[in-house]
Design a protein around this nucleic acid. Structure first.
Length: 629
RNA sequence: CGGGGUGUAGCUCAGCCUGGCAGAGCGCUACGUUCGGGACGUAGAGGCCACAGGUUCAAAUCCUGUCACCCCGACCA
C-alpha cells in the first residue's frame, strides 16, 4: 500500500472505494473532480485522521525533507520575460524563483525563498563563528535618531520617510548604524563589556534613483549588517580582521568568487574600508587591478602614479592666440606639445559653492576624491547656466587671475613647470604658467582618476580595469556614531571614551544574483550544493507503475533518514519537460527513477555541473547523494 | 534627474508605416493518443491593445499629455 498517496486529501475516498488498482493519472483527475464536486464521505475522513503508526512516522519524515512538484507553487518559463537583461535575472524569472511587483521590489516563491534562507544560513553560521551576536532592530526608525547622527540630511533622497498619525517622523532603515549604536549604548558601560560585535539579517529600504539588474539593486532588500564596538583602534583591528576572514569564508562557501579591493567609505563615513567584489562585466563598479603586485581598488579610491612632467625651468608667461581650441587634445596638437604640458580646468559645484579644479591636461578628475577632499556632501559638475553667470570661459579657463572661487589643484598641475593654461578669454591661452608664481591653489590634493594603463602606485606596472559587483563591504568606522549617538565606556582609570566602531555589510539578494551569474550554463542554474534549494532532484518517470512507486517510497524514506531534502518531480508530464526543468532549477544532484533505471539496477544519478551519469542501487542512493553534497 | 528604448493574452512577440471584426507560438482547461531530453490530435478559456484627452463616420494604429518598465550615466549591499 502506498502510504503517501493515502494521506493526500481527496484520495482517501478513492482508495477506500476503488482499491489500489488505478494509475496515478486516474487518481489525479479523480482528485480534481473530488475537490470541486464530490463530497468526501465522513467515514473516510475519520479513517484518514487515524493513520497506522508506521504511516505516521513515515509521513513525518517525508514531510520534513521532501517536496512533490505536483504540489509546489512553481511555474517555470520557457522564455525569459523581456524585462530581464542579466543572465541571473533571466534565470531567476525562468526558474520561477522570484516575481517582480515593481521596479526593485521582488517576491520570492517557495523555491527562491529556500535559496535565500540557505545563503542567510551560511552568513549566520560564519558570523556566529567569529563570536558575533545576532540581534534584531526595528526597520522603522524615529527620524530623531537620524537627525542625531546627521544622516537625515546626508542620506538625502535615498531615505524612505514617513509619518505616523500624530505626524511624528520616521524613516525606513537603509542601514542601521544609528539603531545599532543606540542598542549598544544601552548595554555597554565599561571596557569590560568590550569587544562586542552585533549583527542582524534584515530588510533595508532605499529609495534608489535606479533599481536594476533583477536582484542586483533593489529598493527593498535583505542585508546582513554587523557592527563592532571596541576600546580603541588597535582592538578594532582585531574585530575588523575577524569580520574580514568571516567574509572570505562566507563567499567561498556560497560559491561567489570575490576579491577584496580597497574602497572609498562613502556616505557612511569612516577610515579604512574594503569591498568584496565579484568580477563581472555586468558589474556596476569599476575596479583597478595590478597584475604584478596584486593591488586592487575601486576606481573611486584607486591610487596611481601619474606620468612624470616634462622637466623645464620656469619661463616667462606669454599670451598666445589659439583660435577655436576648446579641448586639451586640440590645444596640444595646435601648439605642437604634449597633453601633459597643459592644465585642464574643470568647474564643480560642491554643496552649492562653486569650485575651480585644476589638473594636468592628460589626467581626469576623480569626483569622489574631490568630494572627500572638500569634505562636501554633494559634488556635481557645474551646469552651463552657472558657468555663464560666473563668467567662466569654458575651453579657455585657468586659475591665473581667478578670484572669488575656491581653487583646488591636483599636484600634477602644481608641480609641473611651464604648463599651457587658458587665458580666461575665448581663443587665447597662456604659455609657461607656473603654480606659485602665476596662480595659487587654495587646496592641493590628489584628485586624479586612475585609468586603465596608468602606473600602479606600488610597483609601477600598468593597471587593468575590470567591472565588478559589490557583494560586501567592511569599514573601520571610528567614533562617528558612537559620539553622536553616545556609545561610551569607562576605561581602567575611569575615563570615558567613545567606542571605536567597525561596520560590515552583505547584500543577500545580490549574493543570490552573483551565485547564479557565477554558476550557470546554457540550460539553467547550477547551484553550489551549499545553497541549492534541495539536496536532490528526483525525476520520477512512469510513477504509476507499481515497481516505481514502491522504489520511490523507499528512496524518500532513505533520503529522509539521511537528513537530505529532495524535490520530487512526480508530475504526469513527459520526461523531456522534467529534465529541462531539472536543469533550469539547477539542483546539483539529479536522480532519475523509472522502469528503465530499475532495469539497469536502481537509480540513475546525474551531476548537474559535469553531466556525468551513473547508476546506483536503490539502497546506495542516499549515501551517493550525501557524498555529492 | 539627463540620454536611449519598450508597453497588445500568464510568457515571447506579430499587427501600427498605409485607420475598417484582436492575432500567432508557448503556457492554461477538457478528452484521446503518447511516455527517458520542452510530444501529437480535437475542442475550449483567456484582451480596458498602459492610462487620459484629441482628430475621424471609424483609433491598437494618427496627434498631445501622463504613467509604468528596461538599458546607459550620477548613487550603493
Amino acid at each position: 500500500m502506498r502510504r503517501h498517496r493515502v494521506e493526500r486529501a481527496g484520495l482517501q475516498a478513492r482508495a477506500l472505494w476503488g482499491g489500489d488498482g488505478r494509475g496515478t493519472r486516474e487518481r489525479r483527475s479523480g482528485h480534481a473532480r473530488n475537490r470541486y464536486c464530490r463530497p468526501r464521505p465522513a467515514a473516510a475522513r475519520l479513517t484518514a485522521t487515524r493513520p497506522r503508526p508506521a504511516t505516521f512516522v513515515h509521513t513525518l519524515l517525508r514531510g520534513a525533507s521532501s517536496m512533490r512538484m505536483s504540489k509546489l507553487m512553481l511555474k517555470t518559463l520557457r522564455e525569459a520575460p523581456s524585462e530581464a537583461e542579466l543572465e541571473s535575472h533571466k534565470l531567476l524569472l525562468r526558474a520561477g524563483l522570484v516575481t517582480s511587483l515593481a521596479a526593485g521590489l521582488y517576491a520570492f516563491t517557495p523555491l527562491g525563498w529556500r535559496v535565500l534562507r540557505k545563503v542567510e544560513g551560511i552568513i549566520r553560521d560564519e558570523m556566529d563563528g567569529i563570536g558575533a551576536q545576532e540581534v534584531r532592530l526595528p526597520e522603522l526608525n524615529p527620524i530623531e535618531l537620524w537627525e542625531q547622527s546627521g544622516r537625515a540630511g546626508t542620506m538625502g533622497q535615498t531615505l524612505f520617510r514617513l509619518a505616523d498619525r500624530k505626524e511624528r517622523g520616521f524613516v525606513l532603515g537603509p542601514t542601521h548604524e544609528e539603531g545599532m549604536s543606540y542598542l549598544a549604548s544601552r548595554h555597554i558601560q565599561s571596557y569590560r563589556d568590550l569587544p562586542v560585535t552585533l549583527y542582524q539579517i534584515e530588510t533595508k529600504f532605499r529609495d534608489e534613483p535606479r533599481p536594476r539588474g533583477g536582484l542586483v539593486r533593489l529598493r527593498e532588500f535583505t542585508m546582513k549588517d554587523a557592527y563592532s564596538f571596541d576600546a580603541g583602534w588597535e582592538a578594532l583591528d582585531a574585530s575588523y580582521a575577524a569580520a574580514y576572514d568571516a567574509y572570505v569564508r562566507i563567499f567561498a562557501r556560497a560559491g561567489v568568487p570575490v576579491i577584496p579591493v580597497a574602497a572609498d567609505s562613502g556616505a557612511i563615513g569612516g577610515k579604512e574600508s574594503q569591498e568584496f567584489v565579484f568580477l563581472t562585466d555586468d558589474g556596476e563598479d569599476e575596479i583597478l587591478l595590478c597584475p604584478q603586485c596584486g593591488y586592487a581598488a575601486n576606481a573611486e579610491k584607486a591610487e596611481f602614479a601619474a606620468p612624470a612632467a616634462v622637466p623645464a625651468n620656469a619661463l616667462p608667461m606669454e599670451r598666445v592666440a589659439t583660435p577655436g581650441q576648446k579641448t586639451i587634445a586640440g590645444l596640444a596638437q595646435f601648439l605642437g606639445i604634449e597633453e601633459r604640458q597643459t592644465v585642464k580646468a574643470v568647474f564643480y559645484v560642491a554643496d552649492n559653492q562653486p569650485v575651480f579644479v585644476a589638473i594636468r591636461g592628460d589626467l581626469d578628475v576623480n569626483e569622489v576624491k574631490l568630494k572627500n577632499a572638500l569634505k562636501a556632501q554633494d559634488v556635481d559638475p557645474m551646469d552651463e547656466a552657472t558657468v555663464k553667470r560666473l563668467g567662466l570661459v569654458a575651453g579657455s579657463a585657468s586659475a591665473v587671475g581667478m578670484t572669488g572661487m575656491k581653487i583646488v589643484a591636483d599636484p600634477s598641475a602644481t608641480e609641473a613647470a611651464n604648463l599651457v593654461a587658458g587665458a580666461n578669454e575665448e581663443g587665447f591661452h597662456l604659455l609657461h604658467t607656473n603654480h606659485g608664481r602665476d596662480w595659487k591653489a587654495d587646496l592641493v590634493v590628489n584628485i586624479g582618476l586612475a585609468r586603465a594603463g596608468d602606473a600602479c602606485a606600488t610597483c609601477g606596472a600598468a593597471l587593468e580595469v575590470r567591472r565588478g559587483m559589490e557583494m560586501g563591504h567592511v569599514f573601520k568606522l571610528g567614533t562617528l556614531y558612537s559620539e553622536s549617538i553616545g556609545v561610551n565606556y569607562l576605561d581602567e582609570s575611569g575615563e570615558r571614551h567613545p567606542c571605536v566602531m567597525g561596520c560590515y555589510g552583505i547584500g543577500v539578494e545580490r549574493m543570490v544574483a552573483a551565485i547564479i551569474e557565477a554558476n550557470h550554463d546554457a540550460n539553467g542554474i547550477i547551484w553550489p550544493a551549499t545553497v541549492a534549494p534541495y539536496d536532490v532532484h528526483v525525476v520520477v518517470l512512469n510513477g504509476d507503475q507499481e515497481a516505481v512507486a514502491t522504489a520511490l517510497d523507499e528512496l524518500e524514506a532513505d533520503l529522509a533518514r539521511a537528513n537530505l531534502t529532495a524535490l520530487v518531480d512526480d508530475r504526469p508530464d513527459s520526461a523531456g519537460i522534467k529534465f529541462k526543468d531539472a536543469d533550469l532549477i539547477g539542483i546539483p544532484v539529479r536522480f532519475t527513477l523509472g522502469p528503465r533505471s530499475l532495469e539497469k539496477g536502481g537509480i540513475e544519478v546525474r551531476d548537474r555541473r559535469t553531466g556525468e551519469t551513473g547508476v546506483v542501487a536503490l539502497a546506495e542512493a542516499a549515501a551517493e547523494a550525501r557524498r555529492a553534497r
